[in-house]
Nucleic acid binder design. Structure first.
Lengths: 342, 342
DNA sequence: TTGTATGCGTTATCAT
DNA sequence: ATGATAACGCATACAA
């Protein structure tokens, strides 16, 4: 048979079952009690025989629902986002929706492009980890009936549901942990703060706590752009020099930074924890293996994904509750990279 | 204004621009030369004023094209698949398509569920890393005009395009590398072979090469189910015992196994590479950090994703070329975990 | 319990 | 260069 074997439609099924398409439609939407037993059987057989799958584009057009949910993240290769995606995907599947995954590389333009595309697909909901530079667009999106949930990064003025880690609490726990251990000098290495709420919250809290303890504060907040070759090495050297002889630690803002710092340290021949201690946000799978265990702050990534999806689904089902901001607690995992002084 | 601000349609634009919807449609599909300059301007303005986005469900219904591409993988949290996804996504975006990401956990039933759902969305193409238990379904899918490209795992009887790593060559390179170094005993640790072509190819080749060299062969092929607690530790112990005193190495089938093995070894107090050498398929970011560098076989994951997407797009555009199987070369990265004998 | 008719937002055919 | 109209596959209001 030549290639023109198009997919069967509801009309084909109706014909095969000897009833009208309305009845088929009823069957498809589960209104079994208003269908006679024998016809129900007929329909079932016809559907199986034809291997019929209702066309979601047609259904979506009619019902104004796509059963598509957008997932827009900065970097889908980053295990942090991947874990969130995994959680979101699990819930999504359970509810018969599909995930449209988009990668922005933290580029506002790419983000805009994708929001447009997703709008064209008439997504029912959107999970987004926004660059923070497309607020007006996001705001309009929500006016058009699309439920938006902010993931990881917050944008208060948008009034959307938001879910992420409790960064302030996490930072406080971590700093207290370090001070209790006797650290005299702590540097915080972050990617450029920009408009990224996560980075901003952590950095600000770091400065605040560090000042409260009479430490050099701002001077030990290092913003490094990992795209610029040599920048990390230079700032690292800067800190190592200025903190020579002190009981010191480097605190990295995420697993990417941790990997880079650890690698650079290894090249420099700096020993962890003998010469320098390390602690980091995120808990990559390899944290326990490197330098006999790196102390980390594990974020509930999977849970964030799960709850974000649950939130958006609730909105899609019509919930009109006021927007909520959920901050899940992080968990500090002490390992050998942060010993006690002495 | 209350919530009923539905999205503008092509009719709204037509009205606003003072022309018929046909003309708008022409404009949208880029047939500018058959539209007068002034009307073109009108239309442009109207579209911007209304913030109009053509509805892809409607367009899809009419043109029988969804601009959606399915991406069905065993584990979207595994960096191996993530890297592939990243490559696929990059190409996808360039062509105005969207990725529908699905996670199967290697479960045939979940795979079936998703194939169904994707069919309902009338995906134009599918990238799949199949469990190998749904061949008939996949076969029918392709009859219905859906282009399928196999990623990573092959299923010859399906006659689909396939792209992955050249496992045979990679295994040969790695084994020669080890033999040249003087290894007397090599164990291969794989996840359960099942129907997974990748695992089968590597394991078979391992046995073949090992026999050719007069080694114990099959006995040193370990299939371990990581879900079963203690199984890895037990088989590890088995090998360590039986190979005591020999110049030996463990070869792991992927990064997941490598992580587990390395962790277990660390707990056992086995030193790498003093007591035992290690080499692994995949090149996770942390490979260079652990035990002063683990020798790996890096697969061209990003490239696989790129080419897989390019293949599927070519099919969507109508290519009728015979199905091709592309095997990209892997790259052995020698590090300190595999020293020379003596 | 079942069927008829209309419309969802597009594109395509055929006119003008 | 532009427009009227008929599909695309489904859901729904209204009839019977």
């Amino acid at each position: 048979m030549p290639s023109k074997s198009k997919k069967p439609t509801i009309d084909d099924v109706a014909r095969a079952a000897g009833v009208s398409k309305t009845t088929i439609s009823r069957y498809l939407s589960g209104q079994f009690d208003s269908i006679a037993e024998p016809t129900r059987e007929q329909i079932k057989k016809a559907i199986e025989a034809l291997n019929y799958r209702p066309n979601r584009m047609a259904r979506g057009l009619k019902r104004d629902r796509s059963y598509l949910i957008g997932f827009v993240m900065a970097d889908i290769m980053n295990p942090y986002f991947t874990a969130i995606m995994r959680g979101a995907e699990d819930i999504c599947r359970k509810h018969g929706y599909n995930l449209l995954v988009c990668n922005t590389d933290n580029d506002p333009e790419q983000e805009r492009y994708y929001i447009d595309l997703l709008q064209a697909h008439r997504i029912d909901g959107l999970l987004i980890n926004t660059t923070g530079y497309n607020n007006e667009i996001l705001s309009e999106l929500s006016k058009d009936y699309t439920s938006v949930v902010l993931v990881d990064r917050r944008v208060p003025e948008l009034g959307f549901d938001m879910i992420g880690t409790d960064n302030v609490q996490a930072m406080e726990d971590a700093m207290r942990f370090l001070f209790d251990l006797g650290y005299e000098r702590i540097a915080y290495f972050s990617e450029p703060l920009g408009h990224t709420s996560t980075r901003l919250e952590r950095a600000r809290k770091f400065v605040e706590i560090t000042e409260r303890h009479g430490h050099p504060s701002v001077n030990d907040l290092y913003e490094v752009d990992l795209q610029v070759p040599g920048q990390l090495e230079q700032k690292l050297e800067e800190f190592l020099e200025s903190s020579k002889g002190r009981f010191r630690a480097i605190f990295t803002g995420n697993a990417v930074m941790l990997l880079k710092v650890t690698t650079a340290l290894q090249h420099k021949g700096v020993r962890v924890p003998e010469d320098l201690s390390i602690i980091s946000f995120d808990d990559p799978e390899w944290a326990q293996l490197v330098v006999s265990g790196i102390t980390t702050i594990a974020q509930p990534t999977y849970q964030i994904g799960v709850q974000a999806m649950e939130l958006v689904l609730k909105r899609i089902e019509g919930s009109k509750e006021p927007a909520q901001t959920i901050q899940l607690p992080a968990r500090l995992i002490a390992r050998n990279s942060t010993p006690k002084k002495g």
